[in-house]
Computed example of a mutant assay.
Amino acid sequence: MTLDSLAIGQRARILAVDWSCLAPDEGERLRALGLDTGARVAIAHRGVFGGGDPIALLIGRMTVALRRAHAAAMTVETL
């Protein structure tokens, strides 16, 4: 399952990230925010326009807006 397919409020742990799908600078920013293998996340909200883009993602006590394409590059397991 990928991160973009999680339901709102569902918790998950990132198992893998396909960094080749992302530009190098985007990958660096995501790693700096803590979005890497092992991170525990939850979907807080989805955008109402453009197919649910962006996704508001909870990482610990922080909320991060993430593009749907970036979330699709992350394989997760639900908790």
Score class of each variant (00 low, 15 high):
F49Q: 13
D36T: 11
I59G: 07
A12F: 05
A69W: 04
R11T: 11
V76T: 11
Q10R: 11
R68Y: 05
D25N: 14
G38R: 02
A16M: 05
A65R: 10
L57W: 03
T75A: 14
P24L: 01
Q10Y: 02
P54I: 08
G9W: 01
L22I: 00
G52E: 09
L79P: 04
A56M: 05
A56P: 00
G27H: 03
A72G: 09
T75C: 08
D53Y: 02
A71C: 01
L58C: 12
F49L: 07
L66T: 01
V64R: 14
F49R: 13
I59C: 11
R13F: 02
T63G: 09
I55E: 02
I8E: 09
I8H: 02
V76L: 10
M62Q: 14
G60T: 11
L15Y: 02
D36C: 06
G9P: 05
Q10S: 04
V76I: 15
A72E: 10
L33Q: 15
L22F: 01
A12P: 03
H45F: 13
S5L: 13
T37N: 03
V76N: 07
L66Q: 00
R13L: 05
G50L: 08
L22D: 03
R68V: 13
F49D: 14
I14D: 06
H45Y: 08
L33N: 15
M74R: 05
L57S: 04
M74S: 09
R11F: 06
A12K: 02
D36Q: 03
S20E: 04
G34D: 12
L66D: 03
P54C: 09
E28D: 04
L58A: 15
R46W: 04
V48S: 10
L22Y: 00
A23R: 03
I59N: 12
F49E: 14
E26V: 15
V41A: 07
V17P: 03
L57F: 09
A71F: 02
L66E: 00
G27P: 06
G9N: 02
I43M: 00
R31P: 04
T63C: 12
L79I: 13
R11H: 13
G34P: 07
A71H: 02
T63K: 15
M62Y: 08
E28T: 00
E26I: 14
Q10I: 05
M62F: 07
V48M: 12
A73Q: 01
L66K: 03
L15T: 13
C21L: 11
H45V: 11
D25T: 10
I55F: 02
G51P: 06
L22Q: 01
G27A: 15
A42N: 04
G27D: 05
L35G: 06
D18F: 01
A7M: 00
T75H: 11
R40W: 11
T2F: 11
L15G: 10
A65E: 07
V17L: 04
L15Q: 14
E26Q: 08
I59W: 14
L3W: 08
P54Y: 01
Q10L: 03
R68P: 03
E28F: 00
S5Y: 10
A65I: 06
L6Y: 02
R29D: 09
D4S: 15
T78W: 10
A7Y: 00
S5E: 09
H45L: 13
A32Y: 06
L33S: 11
G34L: 12
L79Y: 07
V48C: 08
I43V: 14
